[in-house]
Simulated assay, not measured.
Amino acid sequence: MIPYVDPHSLKLGPIEPFGVFVALGIFLAARIVVKQSARQGLDPNPIHDYAPWGVGAGVVSGHLVHLLFYHPEELNKSPFQIFKVWDGLSSFGGLLGGVIAAIIYFKIRKVSFAKYADAFALGVAPGWGVARIGCFVAHDHPGVRTDFFLAVNFPAIPYGGPRHDLGMYDAILLFAITGLLFALRNTGKMQNRLLHLLAIIYACGRFFFDTLRATDLNYVDARYLGLTPAQYGCILLIVYGLWGLITKRSSQTGATPASSGSVGTAR
């Protein structure tokens, strides 16, 4: 059983460990997407330019989804709670904001997002996994009580003892998916389809993990017809992933990896 570490004991002044891991995850994701874009012979400049817009939109959307769908009761604190984007974030909300920003950005730049989709998959999975370590350190996704060997020994008050820690499970899943995606990146049949594969595998795992979320604590996620907001998001991801695997053309020959210093442009 994994010992519980009080997240407040890990603070360095105003710096929260959760924020550190989120920042590291974003940095890692951006670096990998740029590197993989160059490897595929694509111009990495659109990724550099998109990154701040994607992060900004993700933070705002992540907060709004957290506030309006997961914990609408927080609006009772103050009407200004909606502007405190640092106070509560939903990863699915962040994903939604990033996707919307990408659609708008790539459309305006007249750049094909599809050409960068594999690079995004290879970066998003490990970056998201690192951010989820922050969730584990903060213990902000407690599950139901259990004696599972990977359970965290939450304190008896107020948690009631050992529980699943879904932040850790999510991180493990995302790192496993990362290994699979990198193993398949040069496979002709999977090229141009990695993002869809990521969507399906992650959504299936996340949908299951959310069935383990605690319902007996004071601060729990809202349910709608018995499902969490993330589970509805998972259904949409599965539909998107299946659609992509069925309709997207794979590249049997694939793009020739770019040699050092040789980067083409994509339009």
Score class of each variant (00 low, 15 high):
190 M>T: 15
189 K>E: 09
240 Y>K: 05
159 Y>D: 06
225 L>Y: 09
239 V>I: 14
240 Y>W: 08
156 A>S: 11
217 L>K: 01
204 C>N: 14
189 K>W: 05
189 K>D: 12
237 L>K: 05
168 M>H: 09
176 A>F: 12
249 R>W: 01
170 D>L: 15
215 T>I: 12
198 L>W: 12
214 A>P: 11
187 T>F: 14
222 A>Y: 13
187 T>K: 14
156 A>I: 13
228 T>G: 11
200 I>F: 08
223 R>Y: 10
204 C>W: 11
158 P>M: 05
228 T>V: 10
176 A>H: 07
192 N>S: 11
202 Y>S: 15
222 A>Q: 13
188 G>H: 01
185 R>V: 13
193 R>Q: 01
190 M>V: 11
199 A>F: 12
238 I>M: 14
186 N>T: 07
176 A>M: 13
161 G>P: 07
192 N>R: 14
187 T>G: 13
235 I>Y: 12
183 A>S: 11
178 T>M: 11
215 T>C: 09
188 G>Q: 07
182 F>M: 13
199 A>R: 04
201 I>N: 06
234 C>V: 01
169 Y>K: 11
196 H>M: 07
242 L>G: 13
196 H>T: 05
217 L>C: 03
184 L>K: 05
218 N>Y: 15
176 A>Q: 06
169 Y>Q: 10
180 L>R: 04
183 A>P: 02
207 F>T: 06
208 F>N: 07
203 A>I: 01
244 G>Q: 03
233 G>V: 00
194 L>N: 03
195 L>M: 10
244 G>V: 04
197 L>G: 12
174 L>M: 12
194 L>D: 06
195 L>R: 03
229 P>S: 02
205 G>E: 04
173 L>I: 09
222 A>T: 01
193 R>L: 02
226 G>R: 01
245 L>K: 05
204 C>E: 14
202 Y>H: 13
228 T>Y: 10
162 P>N: 14
210 D>Y: 05
218 N>L: 14
227 L>K: 02
235 I>A: 07
204 C>L: 15
246 I>D: 10
157 I>F: 15
182 F>C: 03
196 H>P: 09
240 Y>M: 04
235 I>C: 03
171 A>L: 07
224 Y>K: 07
192 N>G: 03
206 R>Y: 09
205 G>F: 00
179 G>K: 03
157 I>Q: 15
240 Y>A: 05
164 H>V: 12
207 F>G: 09
212 L>D: 01
185 R>W: 00
174 L>K: 05
238 I>G: 02
193 R>A: 00
178 T>L: 11
179 G>E: 06
176 A>E: 10
226 G>W: 02
218 N>I: 10
205 G>N: 10
183 A>K: 09
157 I>R: 14
215 T>A: 15
205 G>S: 08
203 A>Q: 06
176 A>R: 04
188 G>T: 00
244 G>T: 02
210 D>I: 05
157 I>G: 12
202 Y>V: 08
189 K>Q: 06
180 L>T: 00
242 L>H: 12
172 I>H: 06
167 G>I: 09
213 R>S: 07
249 R>G: 03
215 T>Y: 15
